[in-house]
Nucleic acid binder design. Structure first.
Lengths: 201, 201
DNA sequence: GATTTACGGTACTCGCCGTACCTTAATTGC
DNA sequence: GCAATTAAGGTACGGCGAGTACCGTAAATC
């Protein structure tokens, strides 16, 4: 069917699913989520919308699935100092959010609105506020005596990335200037995790 | 035209504009932004879409204008202690985001996506991360010696509300449990602004 | 009273999601 | 191997809502 004349191969199951996902990924990178239409994906995959709707309940779910194909995890940095690690993590995130891929992520987050299930799938993606790398980094800093043990807490550890994220999501910034990252680190994050004064409570 | 038979009064200018906005507000409160359609607003205002599009460029702009009618500003609390003030500010915000009005705000933020001009209009609305009340509150605390003067900085002062906002926008939570607010205050905000240790840099 | 402005009415285009229904190929079971 | 079952392909539509176009007509302006 793909090539008339060639042995008419009608794809099924996993093969077809991969083809659809590939097509969705391509559409997503070319046109963003806004331009991702079910008809175009179907056409590109050489199939029709039925096959898609049999696998994903709606456009958003397909978009998220396609995004997850694209996103790749990078290992957390280890520069030897907390400040270096944190700045590098923020810079990585900043680059990601500023990239085309980041733009897509923002579109998806926007489209997901308050749909928690789907939101959760995006949560732990690169560039987003995944807690794991922050806890790792901060754990090393605590071991080196650069941070207070009380800081080893998801809410505290992720403060920096949440603030950066706020710049994007809330203020619609295309790219955060590096000053902002430095300010977040020096004015907020380091004073917080060092916490040399008496602890609260 | 409103009432056939009555003196046919055709509204113009400000009168018509107010009627449209009132209709939009009503639709917004009844059906949320998702249910706010131009046709329904026009019908409710007893006019047609032309009159709306002459005043607002698109649905989102109308939605935001209508929301701004609804939102009201509350004076910042003054409980005498920083912890009390901050907790109260967070609780106010939590109530607002959890209320129907807050749901509408979330819809609008989601719909605004990365459109900075429109985003800016929502920024300083009640419940959102407006910097002013936080600086006021923190200023009083500094005067009382409860907080370090270096903390009197928008990025630092608004950390608490940004974190709470993150709970909603990112995690899609309907209401943040009070524990979370307390945690934000005691684990993050107070340690940060007290900053009893040596300042960075 | 004539001219300009803007409202009301209506109808339409367009895009695109999601569904329905049927035909036909591939797979599975016997 | 052959029948029964499952899943693709093809196509057509319903539905909805945004935004636009046009035109006749009331209200403001001068």
């Amino acid at each position: 069917m793909r090539q008339p004349g060639a042995g008419q191969t009608r794809r099924r199951g996993a093969a077809l699913e991969e083809a659809i996902l590939r097509a969705a990924v391509d559409e997503l990178t070319e046109s963003g989520y806004a331009g991702l239409t079910m008809d175009k994906v179907a056409a590109r995959a050489g199939t029709n919308k039925n096959a898609i709707y049999r696998r994903w309940p709606n456009r958003l779910a397909l978009g998220i699935a396609a995004y997850r194909q694209l996103a790749t995890t990078v290992p957390p940095p280890d520069t030897g100092s907390l400040r270096g690690d944190v700045l590098e993590l923020l810079r990585q995130a900043n680059r990601h959010w500023s990239s085309p891929l980041g733009a897509i992520l923002r579109e998806l987050l926007s489209a997901a609105g308050g749909t928690s299930e789907l939101l959760a799938q995006l949560q732990e993606q690169p560039g987003d506020a995944a807690a794991a790398p922050w806890l790792t980094t901060l754990g090393r800093a605590v071991a080196r005596g650069e941070a207070a043990p009380e800081a080893l807490h998801p809410r505290v550890a992720t403060v920096a990335i949440v603030l950066l994220r706020n710049e994007f999501v809330v203020r619609g910034v295309p790219t955060a200037p590096d000053d902002v990252l430095v300010e977040i680190v020096d004015e907020v994050y380091l004073p917080l995790v060092r916490r040399l004064g008496p602890s609260p409570s």
